[in-house]
Design a protein around this nucleic acid. Sequence first.
DNA 1: CCGGCCACCTGCGGGC
DNA 2: TGCCCGCAGGTGGCCG
Length: 271
Amino acid sequence: MPELPEVETTLRGLEPHLKGQSVVKLVVRNRRLRWPIPSGLEAKLRGQTLLGMRRRAKYLLLEFPHGHLLSHLGMSGSLRLLTGDLTPQKHDHFDLAFANGMCLRYHDPRRFGLLLWTKREPAMHRLIRHLGPEPLSDKFTGEYLYRLAQKRKAAVKNFIMDGRIVVGVGNIYASEALHRAGIHPTRPAGRISLARYQNLASIIKIVLAEAIAAGGTTLKDFLNSAGLPGYFAQKLLVYGREGLPCGTCLSLIRNLTVGQRASFYCPKCQN
DNA sequence: CCGGCCACCTGCGGGC
DNA sequence: TGCCCGCAGGTGGCCG
């Protein structure tokens, strides 16, 4: 489900309500996420004040006086802010209750997400340490992509989805950005010019920024922290549009498997 | 180091 | 209707 824009949307929805609040309790109904929710986390969080929230890649980082909570939404996770009815539904795996009455509830049918605790700087954590730059930062440029791409034979779509190269570009936005940039998804990363990478890098920034502004993409079940869908799905030009005409040239959009992921592209506009 | 593949898990839609 | 198959927005780990 969530790529960078969906995680950012979740962060922006939660932070104003939760920053500065103290934790009343953590209730875990199912510890078995991608990695088990650590036992003892309940005791660690009780009474602690949430100092701030950040996003790094697709991880949400919650800062407390003695460490950070590190969470990830996986493929099907969502974090909702509840105030009224607290009856848990199927796949509601944990609740973080705050002193102002707000309840942060995690829902995740596939359980590919996670909730971990780290005492050290989150940037030093083994799941974060190896990650590349944020796509919306100044470190992410066409020159940067071009330099790392030299001699690489992997398909450019896999290259830009590799978190060690750049974070936050998932399957939807990789397809969309490559389409807007006119680059075929299977083109070897090392066989793309600097000029095309400059174009691609700026397009990735634009697509992600537009998706954040639209509140993310809801394909079937993404909901923001208030339980509302994002509407960037209406602006997708190729993703999920196999067999439909390209908006530019009317060729039919194709769906090709690249690196075990569906990849949508226009056979005429992208090369 | 790099590239390719698998696994983790549940739900849903299509085809028969 | 019901069963079986394939597929789904992520990503660490393993293998050659």
